[in-house]
Simulated assay, not measured.
Amino acid sequence: MSSSGPADTAAVSERRLPGSPSEVTADWLSAVLSDTDDQVIVDGFDITPVGTGQTAATYRLAIRYRRRGPDLPDTFVLKLPSQDLAVRDRVALGYRSEHAFYTQVADSVQIPVPRCFHCEIADEGREFVLLLEDLSPASQGDQIRGCGTAQARLAVEALAGLHGPRWCDPRWASFTGTVMPKPADSAAATGLGDITALATATTIDTLAGRLGDEDVALLREAANLVGAWLLLRPDRFGVLHGDYRLDNLLFHPDGDRVTVVDWQTLAVGLPARDLAYFVGTSFEPSVRAECERELVDAYHRALIEHGVTDYSFDECWDDYRIAVLQIPMITTLGFAFAAATERGDDMIVTMLERGCAASRDLGSLDLIRGQL
């Protein structure tokens, strides 16, 4: 899709946020890319869809300028709400979460993220727009295929850059950008546990025949533990990505950089939840069993480099084992509330099978029950 025409920025502020690619205009782009010192005029642009669009709609913009501001690129990535209005209503809280990350959190942590040129939200999150740096030719991780240990090491060390700089920061208690209950919120934890049980039942029923009986039994048992599990270890907390997995990571061609995207599931809680979710869903079980201690160690050492103290490797490993419940919780919630796609269904099955295997191998449910 192409668009062109002169930019009239004076009226842009009176317009609603673009909700679809057809509502993106040269006027609007000119306004959001301008600042008080540099007036940008966009002459035209091409917009093409990228990604699978399960909870949001993502596009690449190739812009033609009449007047360009300093350091502005020719291409951007634009994220809009889901084009399915029912999905948009269900995941509006996620758009609010992503807005909170880019406007309140990103500058205070050290995890690598795309440069944000504009982030705006309205109507309780139903209207949302995010204009980001285009990181092409970086390539998205493949959740189904998995990754090698070199990529995984980059990912867990980057993750420490999210958790370490504000480890146990008391200001997280007043942070309002989360979609998950905080460690001290027992009523919200119980409520999320109930929702997870419903999402788990929906997932099992919809994917009937694709999950083995042993996994189905574990998923039901795990769902019944979620409410109490969320309240464990409240003295160790930080901000969580919440959905830290391969599809939300971009690996750069130089082989030594990764960038993290999709911040729609922010939480405050046990930091190892992000770690266990990533490691447990990124490998076939036999491969994970061979490399997971090495990856937990790499994450732990990176935390220390970010200034975390009084946190031993043994404590980190124990947290990792407990945190594996993040996999069935987030995966079933995501399946129940996102738009269905063929690849999405395959991905959910793969993640649940890997997560169930990790839970069994690590004795996670027994460990959790022993803590309750």
Rank of each mutant, 00 (worst) to 15 (best):
D74P: 12
D74T: 15
T75V: 07
T75W: 09
F76R: 06
F76A: 06
V77K: 05
L78D: 09
K79I: 03
L80K: 05
L80R: 01
P81F: 09
P81W: 13
P81S: 06
S82V: 08
S82E: 10
S82R: 07
S82P: 11
Q83D: 13
Q83K: 11
D84C: 00
L85A: 15
L85Y: 10
L85F: 09
L85V: 12
L85M: 13
L85H: 13
V87W: 12
V87H: 10
R88W: 04
D89V: 09
R90L: 08
R90T: 10
G94I: 04
G94M: 03
R96Y: 00
S97G: 11
A100R: 09
T103H: 12
Q104G: 00
Q104V: 06
Q104W: 05
Q110M: 14
Q110I: 09
I111H: 00
V113C: 04
V113D: 07
V113P: 00
R115V: 14
R115A: 13
F117P: 04
H118P: 08
C119R: 02
E120Q: 15
I121H: 00
I121V: 15
I121M: 05
A122W: 07
G125D: 03
R126H: 13
R126Q: 13
R126P: 12
E127T: 11
L130K: 06
L130M: 01
L131C: 09
L132S: 10
E133C: 08
D134E: 04
S139G: 13
S139Y: 09
S139P: 06
Q140L: 14
G141N: 03
Q143S: 15
I144F: 09
R145M: 04
A152M: 13
R153C: 14
A155T: 05
V156Y: 07
E157M: 14
A158C: 07
A160T: 07
G161H: 10
L162G: 01
L162P: 04
L162M: 03
R166I: 04
R166H: 11
W167S: 01
C168Y: 05
D169H: 00
R171F: 07
W172S: 02
W172T: 00
F175M: 04
G177N: 05
T178S: 11
P181V: 06
P181R: 01
P181A: 08
K182N: 01
S186R: 15
T190M: 08
G191T: 01
G193D: 03
G193R: 09
G193K: 06
D194I: 13
I195F: 07
I195Y: 11
T196N: 11
A197R: 15
A197I: 13
L198V: 14
T200L: 10
A201R: 13
T203K: 14
I204L: 09
I204V: 14
T206I: 09
T206V: 12
A208Y: 06
A208G: 12
G209E: 02
G209V: 11
L211Q: 02
L211Y: 06
D213S: 15
D213F: 12
